[in-house]
């Protein structure tokens, strides 16, 4: 297998935090509000006990909890949370030469 070309340093600089917060404040507020309204909708259905052990509801709760942590790469963390497990010993097909 050919060795990969090394990646060059990244020329893209992310925006500074303070101006980014100023710029995105309303958008973030809107997304939090949307999420809150979605949770309210579930509550108004009046059957929260019925979903208590539903894996989807458990994942949503874990996802919301993850956002409140200080861990970096929260988007990657959410993606991993909502992913199935991988077994490195899965039976692989063989190439035919």
């Amino acid at each position: 297998m050919t060795l990969p070309n090394p990646l060059k340093p990244n020329p893209l600089k992310p925006s500074h935090t303070k101006p980014l917060l100023d710029q995105q404040f309303l958008e973030i507020r809107c997304k939090i509000l949307d999420l809150a309204a979605q949770l309210d909708r579930l509550t108004r259905g009046g059957e929260m006990a019925a979903i208590e052990s539903d894996p989807k509801w458990i994942l949503i709760q874990k996802g919301i909890a993850l956002l409140g942590t200080n861990r970096p790469a929260k988007a990657q963390g959410v993606q991993e949370l909502f992913s199935l497990c991988y077994d490195p010993n899965w039976p692989k097909p063989s190439p035919r030469f």
Partner: peptide
């Protein structure tokens, strides 16, 4: 993602 991994490949 581009800001995190760069522009190559």
């Amino acid at each position: 993602i581009l800001e995190m991994v760069g522009l190559d490949r």
